[in-house]
């Protein structure tokens, strides 16, 4: 089964990398967006699927990264692009650290959800009122940067080049998140999600781990936003809207929140639905809503859970992974 999974992964990566050769510009743009949203969804799910904290305001971190990158690129200050991405991620992490220090002290569950929602709205309103950030119109015509690697410079100003750059970054960031989630750190997070009290009993600093997860999640979300700004070439306050915060949530739950690959599959499915229903306003929402309902009612563990269930039922392999462990 692992072989099949690797094969699917390679096929998927191949499709994404060769996309500029066989798809039109519109599809390529959506594919780039999907890759960025995948990073965003993975970052959110580090917090929800692994640590058990649901943030409803993650679009705020995304917007921080997007606006910082967009603003600096437009102002042409001359900061190397990779450094700018790193700075955006750090900015998101710093904001996450400050808010996390205050919020995680006493709140989890529904209160955390409302807190993060309110904070994100404050940020979005602030951006909407800030003249330097273009008010409600946002920052338009953001230039795509030149990549300076020290020994060489790569032009990623063209659509294709920047698309491949997104592919590489998605691989790097996704890989980093994979390592974080599957290492000892990720295992502690999972045990916190399953039973915070017992984990604390074993001598784990629960609040410290939660805060670290929050910071990492905020940082990666901001990095995703940073990749977004030059790709869309326009950043509006809508990127920080709470509707955008629900995007990674839906993707993660659709794909399966307790699996690392769930958000990836969920985002891809969403992108395909959006693309197929793009001609009739309102239809995409109905289709996505109905699909979500069916998933929640029929397969509460998302698509990954559904695949596992089918596999268990039809290909019941001896010694297959017991319930609760992740792939």
């Amino acid at each position: 089964m692992t072989g099949l999974k690797i094969l699917a992964g390679i096929a998927c990566a191949f499709a994404f990398i060769t996309l500029p050769y066989w798809a039109n510009q519109g599809v390529m743009f959506l594919a780039g967006l999907a890759l960025i949203e995948i990073i965003f969804a993975l970052a959110w799910n580090l917090l929800f699927g692994f640590t058990g904290l649901a943030s409803f305001g993650h679009a705020a971190f995304f917007a921080i990264g997007a606006y910082l990158t967009g603003y600096v690129l437009k102002a042409a200050i001359g900061i190397p692009f990779l450094l700018l991405i790193l700075a955006s991620g750090l900015a998101g992490a710093v904001v996450a650290a400050i808010t996390g220090l205050v919020l995680l002290r006493r709140t989890t569950g529904i209160h955390l959800a409302i807190f993060t929602l309110a904070l994100a709205e404050v940020l979005r309103l602030f951006i909407g009122y800030s003249t330097a950030l273009g008010r409600e119109d946002g920052l338009a015509s953001i230039p795509r940067p030149v990549l300076e690697l020290g020994f060489t410079t790569i032009q990623i100003t063209s659509g294709n080049a920047y698309y491949w750059f997104i592919c590489v970054m998605a691989l790097v960031l996704g890989g980093l998140l994979w390592v974080i989630c599957h290492g000892p750190f990720g295992r502690v997070l999972v045990s916190i999600r399953q039973d915070p009290e017992r984990t604390a009993f074993m001598g784990v600093n629960v609040r410290g781990y939660r805060l670290t997860a929050f910071i990492l999640s905020g940082g990666f979300s901001a990095t995703a936003g940073s990749l977004y700004a030059p790709w869309a070439q326009i950043v509006t306050p809508e990127t920080g809207h709470w509707i955008h915060s629900t995007q990674p949530m839906l993707a993660a739950l659709l794909g399966g929140a307790h699996s690392f690959w769930g958000p990836v599959i969920g985002t891809l499915v969403f992108s395909v639905i959006n693309y197929l229903t793009r001609n009739l306003i309102g239809l995409s929402e109905v289709v996505i809503g109905v699909v979500l309902l069916v998933i929640v009612l029929a397969a509460p563990n998302g698509i990954v859970g559904l695949i596992k269930m089918i596999r268990r039922r039809f290909f019941s392999t001896p010694g297959s992974s017991p319930a609760g462990t992740r792939s």
Binding site: L250, G289, V290, L292, L297
Partner: peptide, 11 residues
Amino acid sequence: ATFAVLLVCSG
């Protein structure tokens, strides 16, 4: 689930 209902309704 309620969010899905929200999506269906607004659609």
